[in-house]
């Protein structure tokens, strides 16, 4: 799925033989997507959670078997577990900030479609994604941001591929609806109020 999967697979294989530079290459190839995924899960704490995940990845690298795409799935699974641990620890401070209402109240760009798209901030996109039901958000992030294929995303989530495909589809439609609606302010409340 990703252009660098071949390069990544080779780097991982060399890293498993003890090549430190190859490990750094793998890190640079994987970390951006992983961090994007974690941002969707834990927001601002993504960097910390990613650091924890990489400690585990480095420790267990010898156990891993697979190619570049497999490595993305394996690392995403580890990162996800770290993220869920993190969220569990944080339950005292639930992540209710990303309710749909909050998303609605974020300053959204007006008038035209392309303006809306240009003006969208990371913060805003994040809140949109995090406003999705968890299964939809994760399915979208794993497919789009981490770059996993359907079966791999399903394995990370421990769900059936069909369920994940559906969740990703609904999540994207929902995001599309919100983003599209932002540019048509009159209709926004009704559109956004609907749940798929």
């Amino acid at each position: 799925m990703r252009a660098h999967d071949g390069e990544l697979g080779a780097a991982v294989a060399r890293a498993q033989q003890g090549d430190e530079a190859a490990f750094a290459v793998a890190y640079r190839l994987v970390q951006p997507g992983l961090l994007g995924y974690l941002r969707g899960l834990v927001g601002d704490d993504a960097e910390d959670v990613a650091s924890d995940a990489w400690l585990e990845i480095a420790r267990d690298l010898g156990r891993f078997k697979g190619d570049g795409a497999g490595f993305r799935g394996w690392t995403a699974t580890i990162a996800r577990h770290r993220a869920l641990d993190h969220l569990r620890r944080q339950r005292v401070r639930p992540r209710s900030s990303a309710t749909e209402q909050d998303v609605l109240e974020l300053p959204g760009p007006q008038s035209t479609h392309d303006q809306a798209l240009e003006a969208i901030s990371t913060e805003y996109a994040l809140e949109l994604v995090r406003g999705l039901p968890r299964d939809q958000a994760e399915a979208v992030l794993l497919r789009v941001v981490v770059g996993l294929d359907g079966p791999a995303a399903a394995r990370v989530l421990g769900k059936r591929p069909g369920a994940v495909r559906t969740a990703a589809y609904r999540g994207l439609k929902r995001l599309a609806g919100r983003l599209g609606a932002e540019s048509v302010t009159e209709e926004a409340p009704r559109t956004l109020g609907e749940s798929t």
Partner: peptide
């Protein structure tokens, strides 16, 4: 939508 999400959440470089 995908492009938007990627552009917003994924930063190149580490």
């Amino acid at each position: 939508v995908e492009a938007l999400i990627v552009a917003s959440l994924v930063r190149d470089g580490v």
